[in-house]
Design a protein around this nucleic acid. Structure first.
Lengths: 161, 161
DNA sequence: GTACGAGTTGCGCAGACTGCTCAGCGTAAA
DNA sequence: TTTACGCTGAGCAGTCTGCGCAACTCGTAC
């Protein structure tokens, strides 16, 4: 589970790129387009996955498209008596909490939360702060998405080196 | 490109769930496990994609595993003279900017940024604030990931209704 | 200079899946 | 009753996957 060889070469990058653009493409077609042997593509992919560089090929669900149109970032201040672990467990129980990180700065935890509406967001936040380990929450609502989550540019940049 | 039928039923949810757990499973195997006809699975998937609920099946790249071990959230204050559009374009040119949103509150834009190290983060931030439309940046570094980005619980919750 | 390991290549095969189409059928709305 | 829609079960041709193998190249260690 180590991840030493943290370097991508040009082939890896092009591989990931093509997969990102056309996920259903298949190993064989990839090998044709990249002009390498099928086994090579297979081996590279296996290695990328084993190394952890590619976590999965799961479906990317858009919360907005399934009724959760409100997105927000909530900063939590947690009581020192309670560890992050307990708070994390509490947050994990709430489906609307999409991710959570401990952070530097004035807050302790930053999490991304979605809701069906602003009113619904209130409900979710109430649920979050209902836990005694959480002292208070600071909510920021995302108005518009300027850049949708992406990693392709990063992959390209990483392979240039 | 409308997205009216914003409701998932139990079958949709189980479909997405199984795909998330075992992405390489294939339509045929899905139909077997869900005990429905292959055509049904195919139709449901097509609809989910058409509706925008599932954006893609692209590879999920883990920045940390390709050398970008530092993650941060940066709040930007932008000059009123410059529109979001111009700023968005500038941010889009920087590979390390993984996503960006306009937000409520004291800042104007919140973006997620990765870097190879803390020193490297400084370089990226300098690059961001180098644009004249951006007045100042407020950086928060993510220390640990309590909950990795997920949507499965949300999908399940959405279908319960 | 030689041997070794890793990575790549090209090939082949059996098994399995995909994309597409069609007809039958039950349910719900018009 | 008629119409529309979704699910079902089946079939077919084309294609891909998983697997194994022998050969070749290249960099490194001996």
């Amino acid at each position: 589970m180590t991840m030493q060889s943290v370097q991508l070469d040009a082939l890896d990058a092009r591989l990931v790129e093509m997969l990102a653009v056309e996920p259903r493409i298949g190993v064989l077609e990839l090998s044709r387009r990249l002009v390498v042997a099928r086994g090579t593509v297979q081996a590279r992919l296996d290695k990328l996955i084993a190394r952890g560089a590619i976590k999965s090929f799961g479906p990317e669900v858009i919360p907005e498209a399934i009724g959760f149109g409100v997105m927000s970032f909530v900063t939590l201040e947690i009581s020192q008596r309670y560890g992050h672990t307990a708070v994390a467990a509490h947050l994990a129980d709430i489906p609307e909490v999409l991710e959570a990180h401990t952070i530097t700065g004035s807050g302790d935890v930053l999490c991304r939360i979605v809701a069906r509406s602003n009113a619904d967001l209130q409900r979710v936040i109430d649920q979050i702060v209902g836990y005694e380990g959480i002292v208070r929450a600071h909510t920021i609502i995302a108005l518009a998405e300027l850049i949708h989550y992406r990693t392709l540019p990063l992959v390209k940049a990483a392979s240039l080196a």
